[in-house]
Each structure stands twice: as structure tokens, then as C-alpha cells.
Design a protein around this nucleic acid. Structure first.
Lengths: 351, 351
DNA sequence: CTGAAAGCGCTAACAC
DNA sequence: GTGTTAGCGCTTTCAG
């Protein structure tokens, strides 16, 4: 900026005025400055600018995994909103690791982001207290913050969605419904399990622990759990899967169990012999690509809306809104596509 | 920092030393400083730090769309590498808009990112000249920079992959192969079209423009193009789709054309009547979720490797590597799953 | 309309 | 081992 000023024969401050489109600069002077800027290839240093001004016009987003469609949709919506507010976006994936979440958040704070959107992996967010003290705002998305951390949060109606999914299967005659969910320490997984239990209770059905398998969406884990479920004395007639990854891996596992293994039936699609559910009904939590073609009934969340809502809320806070902490809960939507509307097979003991 | 210094009864510089784990501080003094830091909730301002030090320890990534699985995988890999190098990552989606790409890149440069990874939407990158002059490094990924911009680039072997895909169909007896690609102004689309043509030429087959439909992966557009192709006098017996989105939308379009429309056959999956290809063979460029279950043969790229390679290259440059500009071309992999190995129907004129 | 001076929070380069 | 001084590139404040 000094160089530009010298080249244009003006003072530093005049260059600053031109660069920032501030009023009160002689048109001719401005032109001379602009020429010098172009000639020297000058670009304002926003780092120095934000140091002086206090706000960095940037926000930080911590998600679980940028490569997962759910979070990438959420991320995209946040990005859009941020750009709309003239903000740049730092992104980081926590990989479901509390320490890494914390490191990322603190790194963003060290960069003095104006605000944070966090999909928490951990359950202790007391480390944020000094940041809040310093004026940084945070909105939690998809999962609430740990106890003792007062912050806005935007969730899906996880329990309600799972309840609707289970009730849907019950309405179609199922009495033995298995639930395949994520690790129970994850908020969304616990909530969905709760919804499942509530639906059973509402229908007067017993809760059978043998029908519940919680764990990561690991192919081997799911194959083992499914095999166990299906060879039980009183196997389930329907499945409720707790998230997108689990649904997809369950489809794979079922295809391999029911014989139409990916390898074996390389021509599944071709020969019209689509990998089957082996007589099971299925409702999946989360919509996924090609679920429509496969005819899989799902309880859909709206990750983009989750992101948009969280970002809108954050910018409201950054604009000075100091109302009480809020908790949004976005509705889910059951989309019947066939797999969730199949009746159970006739019961052998009631011919 | 001043406050901490005062609270600990030391000079500013000593606090700085403690904060940065610099050697040569009395253990007792350090402890006193640390106590003051905790008590006051002090956090170093990295903005000021980078202003002083010159490097910002951050890089910018511009992709096409963060919500697209291809780019989100690439993005995730870049993020991982960046974090590994102690760098934070700015992300932005260009939405295939050259002006927006430029705005994002320049915004990142104004923040003085150390380096850039760009999936270019535009074809003119002369606007980067001043940034290069200033020492910012850039690596292009997935597509090369516009003419006159000397920069490293990491690509997939697009032409080779398409050639392999088309050759695969030819080897299985197909003579009339349609190509459904993206807008030809997009580098990857043009390259894949070239590969398709080369495969035809190598097999002595004519290039028939009527069999080529280039455009966005818009459902309506694809349905219309497919309908036109299939009702022609001499219709194709096989399809080569030019990218993941197009493959998926083509499957949808075919399902709706061949009667097993998503709506009509909500139970497709359930009844074992998987949406068919209507007798067509299919090879898709890009692997996609559930392609294995559907039995769709694909030419797979490795987006994560693309991102990793680009990031590694960038950090090599940032570490001082001043070798000549390089151009990486990563191999693709043909994965046969059934849809690409179906023979054409017997020809009527050769009974 | 333009400019000079101070300082945002930090670190590099030297003192002591 | 510790402290002082200067300055990164910009904006704010106030003076012409």
C-alpha cells in the first residue's frame, strides 16, 4: 500500500480510501491510484485489515466427515449462506473424534473466526467458555453441545422420525422389527433408538434387545449382526436402519447373505434379478442416492436445511441478536417406496 | 498478551516464548505465565501472528460443488493433507461459474493463503499472475488451467478411461455405442469424448454424431436425449455415460422409459423386478454408491487420490521445490459388474 | 478532499 | 534467562 501511495503520489490513507470505495476522494486522484494499483498488481491484505477491524469475516465449520453425503450437503448449505454474508469458510472433519473436534475448533478460534458451526463429536464443550467470553458465537448442528454449554442448536427430529419409521412397519403388520443403529454414544443414534422404542411401546409391542444391533456402519459388523438376527428362532420380519451408511451396507450385506452377492451376481441389474431383501421389509433413516430406483422406503432428513438453518441462526447472532438460546428441531419425512410396505410373511403358528 | 505479561509480572516477549514453546525460559517463570494464561483465558491471535511471520498456514480449495460426492472426496483428501501440514483449509464451490471461481480465488489470496488448489470452472487464469508474482502457489486439479497459466496440474486419464470403457463395449460385440457426456466446454467431458472417438477409430467403427448427446446431467434433458436415441432407426445397443451424475440420471431415465418408473414401481426392489436397462449395455464413467449392487460396470476415477496428489504437490512447492511445472495423470480402472458385459441383441439383418 | 500519527497483536532482531 | 525496540499492512482518529 505504501508502494502504491508512492507510485500515485498520494498518502497511504488515500489508497486505503480508494481500495475500500470510501467516499470523499477526488475522481482524478482515485483514477491515478487505481492505475498504480493495477500497475503494481497490488492486492489488499485482508489479514492485516481484519487485525485492525476486529472482525475476520470468516466462520469455521466442523463436521464429522466432509466425504459423507449428509455432511457435504450440510456443508454446502453453510458455505452458500456464508458467502452470501461476505464470509469465508474454514472447514474441518472431526472424524467422530472429540480431541480432533476440539483442536479444530480452537484452531479456528485462534484464527479469530467470527462464528462457529459445530457438529460435535465430543460431549464436553467447556473448552469453549473462554471463546464465548471473547465474543465468538457458536451454533451446534445435528447434535447438541455437551452439558454446561449454552449455545443454539439445530437438530432433526430424530426420535420422531424413527418413531414414524417403526410405526409405518407396525402399521403394515410387522411385530418383530429389528433396529440397526450407530454407536449409542452418538446423540442421533440414541434418539433414533428411543423413537423406535416409543413406537413399539405405543403399539403395545415388547422391546426385545436381541433385535437391536448398535455399532459403526462397518460391513463386517453388519453382516455378522444380520446373520445372527436372521438365524434366530424368532427372526425379525422387518428392519429399521439407523442412518444412510448403515442402510446401504445393510443392503450389501443382505445381498451377500441372500445369495445375490455383488461378485456372484455381477449381472444382477442386467438380468432383472435385483439383489433381494430376502423377504424382509425395510425402512431406512436418511434418504440416499438411488433409493428411489431401488424402491427403498426411507425417513428423510434435510441436511441442506439443517446447514442453512444453523448458518442463518449464526449470522443472526453475529448481527447482534442476543435473545435466549434456541433449539430448532426440523421435521423428517417418510417416503414410501415399496420396501417398507411389504407385509410380513404369514405366521406359521397361525396358519 | 500484554495482560498476561502484566498478570505474570514478565515482559511481553516472555509470554510469546511460552506460548510458542520456545526454549530458554525458566521453568518457574513459564509456569507462572501459563497460570496467568489459564486464568485470563488467553488465546494467541493467529491473525496477528501470520501478519508478522509472513505465512498464514492456510490454503484455499476451490471445487465445483462441495455437495457432489466426487468433489467432496477430493476435498476430504486435501483437508487431511493440509491438517497434516498444520494448515487450515478455506473451501468454496464455484458452481461451474468462472466469475465465482475467480472471486473465491482472489478472496483466498486476499487472505494471503499460502497456496491454492483449484478445480477450474473458467478457462482464463491470467488474473492469477499478480498472485504468482507475490509467491502464492497454485495446483490445478481435475482440469488444467487456461492457456498462459503455468501451474502444476493433476488430472485423471480421462481420454484413456473413456477409451477403455468404449473398447470394453466393443470387445463385447457392440457396434452402435451412444455417448452421453457433460457440456463439451468442460475439459473432462471433451477428453472423455475424445477417448470414446479414439476407441471407435481403433476398432474401425464410424463416428456417428447422432449417437452423441452432450449436456448437463439434467433429468429432463437426459430423458429426451435417451428417448430420441432409442427410437431412432438404428438405435444404440450400448451406452457410455460420461460422469457419475449422468450415469445415475440415465438409470432413472431408462427406468422411466422402459416402464419401471420410480413412481409406478415403487416396489421394484421388493418384487425382484429391478429397473431394467431395456436390453442396453452400459458402462459409466465414475464409480458411484451402490453401483456394485446394481451391477453397473464403471470406469472408476480415484477422487481422493486426485486430491491427495494435488495437495502433496502443493506442499512440496511450499517447501521450496522449484522444479519445472508438472502434469500428473492418474490412471482409471475399469470395474466389470455385468452391465458392460452384455452382448448386443442378435442383428435382424444377419439372422 | 487529503494526510499524519497511533495502534490492532504479534514476532524478529537484538540488547542486557 | 529475560526485556526492548521495531514493524508486519492495514484502519481509525483527528488535523489540516
Amino acid at each position: 500500500m505504501n508502494d502504491v501511495a508512492a507510485a500515485a503520489g498520494v498518502a497511504l490513507k488515500t489508497v486505503s480510501r480508494v481500495v475500500n470505495d470510501e467516499p470523499g476522494v477526488n475522481a482524478a486522484t482515485a483514477l491515478r491510484v487505481k492505475a498504480a494499483i493495477d500497475r503494481l498488481g497490488y492486492r489488499r491484505n485482508d489479514g492485516a485489515r481484519t487485525l485492525r477491524r476486529g472482525r475476520t469475516a470468516s466462520i469455521g465449520l466442523v463436521i464429522e466427515d466432509a466425504a459423507d453425503v449428509f455432511y457435504s450437503s450440510l456443508s454446502r448449505a453453510v458455505e452458500e449462506t456464508a458467502l452470501h454474508h461476505g464470509c469465508l469458510l474454514f472447514t474441518g472433519s472431526s472424524q467422530e473424534d472429540a480431541a480432533r473436534e476440539r483442536d479444530l475448533v480452537l484452531a479456528f478460534c485462534a484464527r479469530r473466526v467470527d462464528g462457529l458451526i459445530i457438529v460435535p463429536a465430543g460431549t464436553d464443550h467447556t473448552y469453549l467458555a473462554p471463546e464465548f467470553e471473547a465474543g465468538t458465537r457458536a451454533v451446534f448442528a445435528d447434535r447438541p453441545p455437551g452439558a454446561g454449554c449454552e449455545a443454539d442448536v439445530v437438530l432433526s427430529d430424530n426420535a420422531g422420525g424413527a418413531r414414524a419409521g417403526a410405526a409405518h412397519l407396525i402399521a403394515h403388520g410387522h411385530r418383530r422389527i429389528a433396529f440397526l443403529g450407530d454407536l449409542p454414544r452418538i446423540f442421533t443414534a440414541a434418539e433414533r433408538l428411543r423413537g423406535y422404542r416409543e413406537a413399539l411401546a405405543a403399539a403395545g409391542l415388547p422391546y426385545d434387545e436381541a433385535l437391536v444391533a448398535m455399532g459403526p456402519a462397518d460391513p463386517a459388523r453388519l453382516r455378522a449382526d444380520l446373520a445372527r438376527l436372521l438365524r434366530a428362532a424368532d427372526p425379525p420380519t422387518a428392519l429399521l436402519t439407523g442412518n444412510g451408511r448403515t442402510t446401504v451396507e445393510t443392503l450389501r450385506a443382505l445381498a451377500s447373505i441372500t445369495g445375490s452377492a455383488p461378485g456372484a451376481t455381477a449381472g444382477a441389474f442386467v438380468e432383472g434379478a435385483c439383489p433381494g431383501l430376502g423377504g424382509l421389509a425395510l425402512v431406512g433413516f436418511d434418504d440416499f442416492e438411488l433409493a428411489d430406483l431401488l424402491g427403498v422406503t426411507v425417513v428423510a432428513q434435510d441436511p441442506a436445511r439443517l446447514g442453512r438453518t444453523a448458518a442463518d441462526l449464526l449470522f443472526l447472532r453475529l448481527a447482534g441478536d442476543d435473545g435466549p438460546v434456541t433449539r430448532f428441531e426440523l421435521p423428517t419425512r417418510l417416503i414410501p417406496r415399496g420396501s417398507g410396505e411389504r407385509p410380513p410373511p404369514p405366521r406359521r403358528d397361525h396358519p
